[in-house]
Design a protein around this nucleic acid. Structure first.
Length: 467
RNA sequence: GCUUCUUUAGCUCAGUUGGUUAGAGCACAUGACUGUUAAUCAUGGGGUCCUAAGUUCAAGCCUUAGAAGAAGCGCCA
């Protein structure tokens, strides 16, 4: 053929009508009559298809009959202005080469009407759909936005380990990592498994958070962020949980809780703005097909500051709501952990705006959070979004060695896992803050998808690790 | 893990009080149409009604158990 391939995203912007062009991609639909056929071709470079026009007799019938939905083809033709209404540019086909046929009786993707559940069962093919093409292009763009946001502000991308020997990183259940023969486990006299001969010589697991190591980096490089896979072995069956997900965890020396909130809010707004600026076609599609209010909701998040509210004030609002007759399944009182119905009331009914809740009772938050002077609360912050709930959890960290040690001992956290973490407070301790943002939860918000299994290419959830 | 719901054609679904041969749209095949936009129109093929046991003269429909999926909740990001 000899003509260099043009990506469809570029071809659609060309105006040098009459010149020869080569496009390659997967057939979405073919339609027409005995005089002319129309082929909608997509190569993933954009959600838009390019239309190939085949005049009768131009292309061998035997080739044309293999141009079916799902087939992969290469087409050389003339770039022309479209006579039809749906597009401005199209390709008048001169020759078509079939790269890969797709048997119409076996190819599972339909032109319309597939449920998200069905597409999950064919996750190896679902990126070829409009919806998942859009989602995964946006996913890429969000990853780029995240790196650009932090890089532009002098943060360093820091790689924390995926395999860890500490079992106290968070409250989450962990996946164990071992090369031991599980059919023949050696045990000591107490029945405990002996790990001396395991690969690392001790029990190891997949990380549930890079935060503790991230803090080590922040106390050296100043401002860092992590962005990597994270694993939780919780038996969580919800549209907001994955066993394997990606998390972004910035950690900044000398930031207090206010700086931390500023960073979180600026960060989320930057990502949303990036999507609006760089993913217009994909967002327009999702806005039309998945969620009619998507673009408007994205724009509205950018307009107003997030509502910032101490936990104690939040409890007051909830108690007032109960007094006025609002019914909650779980009781509201100072000290209670907020259930999602409580969070949703604050975000979706009371404020109708993203809410950053701060200063939670220390009993319901992690050991490393900085204790307030009141002796009761800690400088935690949760960023709560409509429908998806907690999108960010973070805090100012406890910088005082004695306070942190006391808290660790109160909670019976083993020192063998904590000595190196405590050293950051022992040697040149500094105030610092950070947070964790669930990448897929951000994507839920940005794409309007409602199930987290549909914003990651190959979801891992309880009883599901296919592909 | 708890609660609820769902499972019928390749896909999305309907199926009345238990009653004779289980339906529709899309997809697919064939045909029609001189430019279609999820093309349209006509005709046609296509079924382990999730699995097992039970009740009944008779079960897609009722009962019990199981499986898979989803939603709500808990845990959290």
């Amino acid at each position: 053929m000899g003509i260099k391939r043009t990506k469809i995203v570029d071809a659609l912007g060309l105006t040098n009508y009459g010149s020869e062009i080569n496009v390659k991609g997967w057939v979405r639909t073919k339609r027409g009559n005995k005089n002319v056929s129309f082929i909608a071709l997509n190569d993933g470079s954009t959600i838009k298809n390019i239309q190939l026009v085949v005049d009768a007799g131009t292309i061998d019938e035997n080739i044309l009959k293999d141009v079916t939905t799902g087939a992969c083809i290469s087409c050389v033709g003339t770039l022309v202005q479209s006579q039809g209404a749906g597009q401005s540019v199209e390709v008048l086909a001169k020759s078509i080469e079939i790269y890969g046929k797709a048997d119409v009786n076996e190819y599972p993707l339909q032109k319309k009407g597939c449920s998200m559940e069905f597409l999950r069962e064919i996750a190896h093919l679902r990126p070829r759909t409009n919806t998942f093409g859009a989602v995964f292009r946006i996913r890429h763009n969000m990853a780029i936005a995240i790196h650009k946001f932090f890089h532009d502000r002098g943060f360093f991308y820091f790689h924390t380990p995926i395999i860890t020997a500490s079992d106290c990183e968070g409250a989450g259940q962990m996946f164990q990592v071992t090369t031991k023969n599980l059919y023949d486990l050696k045990k000591d006299e107490n029945g405990s498994i002996i790990y001396d001969d395991d690969f690392f010589g001790k029990m190891t697991s997949l990380t549930v958070s890079g935060q503790l190591e991230g803090e080590l980096a922040a106390t050296a490089l100043g401002s860092i962020y992590t962005f990597g896979p994270t694993f939780r072995a919780e038996n969580s069956n919800t549209p907001r949980h994955l066993a394997e997900f990606w998390m972004i965890e910035p950690e900044v020396a000398f930031n207090d809780i206010e700086d931390n909130m500023d960073l979180a809010e600026e960060f989320i707004k930057y990502c949303v703005q990036w999507a609006l600026d760089n993913c217009q076609d994909d967002l327009a599609f999702l806005n039309q097909m998945i969620d009619k209010g998507l673009i408007e909701r994205l724009q509205s998040v950018l307009k107003a500051p997030f509502t910032r509210l101490p936990y104690t004030e939040g409890i007051k609002i909830l108690e007032e709501a109960v007094a006025k007759g609002k019914k909650f399944e779980f009781p509201v009182y100072w000290g209670c952990d907020l259930a999602s119905e409580h969070e949703r009331y604050l975000v979706e009914e009371h404020f109708k705006n993203p809410v950053i809740l701060t200063d939670y009772p220390k009993e319901i938050k992690a050991f490393y959070m900085k204790q307030n002077e009141d002796g009761k609360t800690v400088r935690a912050m949760d960023v709560l979004f409509p429908t998806i709930g907690e999108i960010i959890g973070g805090s100012e960290r406890e910088a005082d060695y004695d306070k942190l040690l006391t808290r660790i001992q109160e909670l019976n956290i083993p020192m063998k896992d904590m000595w190196w973490y405590l050293d950051t407070r022992k040697f040149g301790s500094c105030p610092h803050s950070g947070f964790g943002l669930g990448f897929e939860r951000l994507l839920l918000f940005v794409t309007g998808m409602t199930n987290i299994r549909d914003v990651i290419p190959f979801p891992r959830t309880p009883r599901s690790a296919e592909f």
